[in-house]
Every structure is written in C-alpha cells, then in structure tokens.
Simulated assay, not measured.
Amino acid sequence: MDANAVTEIVGYAASALIVLSITQTSILKLRLFGFAGGLTFLIYALAIGAYPIAVVNVIGASIHAWYLRKLIRRKAEVFRILHVAPDSEYVRRFLEFYADDIQGRFQPEFVHEPEADTITAFTLRDMVPAGLFIGEQSGDGRVEVKLDFAIPQYRDFAIGSYLYSEDAGLLADVPATSLWSTASNPDQAKYLRRMGFAEVPDVPGRYERQVDAAQAA
C-alpha cells in the first residue's frame, strides 16, 4: 500500500470519528470521539500539507481535551432513588414525553397501568430525574421489571448499576426475592446481563436476578 493510500485512509478515519462524535448523547463520549477525530485530522492535514486545517484541528482537539479534563476531574456524581406514587402526574407526563423512545426502541410492549402495589421510582443523578423504574409485585416474592428507562443523555450504565445496587434501596419495604424481565431485543438482553440478570433456562428471552436480603430490607 503506497503512502497516498494510507493518507487517504487516515482522512476517512478522521471524518468517521467526527461524524461519530456528533451522534453521541453522552457528553463524555462526544468529547472523546471529538478529540480523537481532531488528532486524526491533524495528522491527515500535516500529511497533505494543509496547514490551515492543521491549525483548526489543533485548536479543536485542545478544546475537547480541556473539557475532557474538566469532566474527568469533576466531583463524583450523586445518585438517589426517589419513590413516587404509581399514579403520579409527573410519572404520567414523563412517560408521555418519552413514549416514542420507550415503545419504539426499548420496551414496545410496555403499558402503564398503575396499581396500589406498583413500585415506581426515579433515579436522580445530581438531582436530575435521569431514569424511571416501574415494577409489579406478583405476590410470591418476585417483581417483574415493567420498565427500566434512562433518558438519552444518561445512557452509560451508571444509572442501572446504581439502581440494582444494595445502596439504592429500590426494594425498600418490599418482600422481594427476585427481579425478572423479558428482553424484547438484543440490546436489552445485553443490558440485563450486565446488570446481573441471568437468562432463565427453557424460557427464551426471560431474565432473572436474585435479590439480596440487604436490597429488600
């Protein structure tokens, strides 16, 4: 492969990284891909002698690096669980606002039919309502996860990791022994496995996670 072909590949790679950066909903990922794209474009610009383009990308990469440093060094985020009434007006409006995202991509079978024992809780991330959990108790200690949804800008697994941790208190005052959910697509199945759920033998698409006593205390 000659030098011109290699240079062209570097240019295409730089373009791909820049395009990828603007598709990210996570600010951290946007900055990471933007920084990588800027550096790659810098190499490409120097290789073809386009010095004005090189200068622009030095500036762009430096800006991304500065914001990345701020993101990495900022104080640790604070997570909290906020239980709310199943028939809360805010829950209804939240579900209406994100209905297309929930039913079109994540849990198309979800229908909100609140009952008195429905577990409804927001995950607050630095006091922003970043995720919503809705679960139904079955009476035998099992809780069906009807909805586990994070708003677009907070989809980095941090919410789920906290939600199902002992510290969260998601199932406080609920005599639960396990959580279960049905994966409607490969992405959801991957997420459930990452959150500690295991596929139930002989029941395709169903995943279950045992609840520690501390979580249900």
Rank of each mutant, 00 (worst) to 15 (best):
M1K: 04
N4P: 00
A5E: 12
V10Q: 01
G11F: 03
S15M: 08
A16V: 12
L17S: 04
I18H: 03
I18M: 11
I18Q: 02
L20S: 12
S21N: 11
I22G: 01
I22W: 10
T23W: 02
T23I: 10
S26N: 13
I27W: 00
L28P: 00
L30R: 13
R31L: 10
F33S: 01
G34L: 05
A36K: 03
G37C: 04
G38M: 08
T40S: 13
I43V: 15
Y44T: 08
I48Y: 07
G49F: 04
G49N: 09
Y51K: 05
I53A: 13
I53F: 13
A54D: 12
V55H: 10
V56C: 06
V58W: 04
V58D: 04
I59L: 13
G60H: 00
I63Q: 03
W66T: 13
W66Q: 02
R74P: 00
K75G: 03
A76W: 00
V78L: 11
V78C: 10
V78W: 03
F79W: 06
F79A: 05
H83I: 02
H83W: 04
V84E: 07
D87G: 12
S88V: 10
E89A: 15
R92F: 11
F94T: 03
E96D: 15
F97Q: 11
F97Y: 14
A99F: 02
D100Y: 05
D101H: 07
D101R: 04
I102S: 01
I102H: 02
Q103C: 05
Q107C: 10
Q107V: 12
F110P: 01
E113D: 13
D117C: 04
T118F: 05
A121H: 11
F122E: 09
R125T: 09
R125Y: 10
A130N: 05
A130K: 01
A130R: 01
A130S: 13
L132R: 07
E136Y: 08
E136M: 06
Q137H: 00
G139T: 07
G141Q: 07
G141S: 09
G141V: 08
R142S: 15
V143K: 05
V143L: 06
V145P: 08
K146E: 15
L147R: 09
F149G: 06
P152R: 03
Q153M: 12
A158I: 13
I159W: 01
Y162N: 11
Y164I: 11
D167N: 11
A168E: 02
A168Q: 02
V174H: 06
V174F: 03
A176S: 10
A176Y: 10
S181Q: 13
T182Y: 15
N185D: 09
N185R: 08
N185Q: 09
Q188T: 09
A189N: 06
Y191V: 05
R194M: 11
R194S: 11
F197S: 09
E199T: 07
E199S: 02
E199Y: 05
P201F: 03
D202Y: 06
V203A: 12
P204M: 08
G205D: 10
G205S: 08
Y207L: 04
R209S: 06
Q210D: 14
V211Q: 10
D212R: 14
Q215W: 04
Q215G: 09
Q215Y: 01
A216F: 00
A217W: 12
A217K: 14
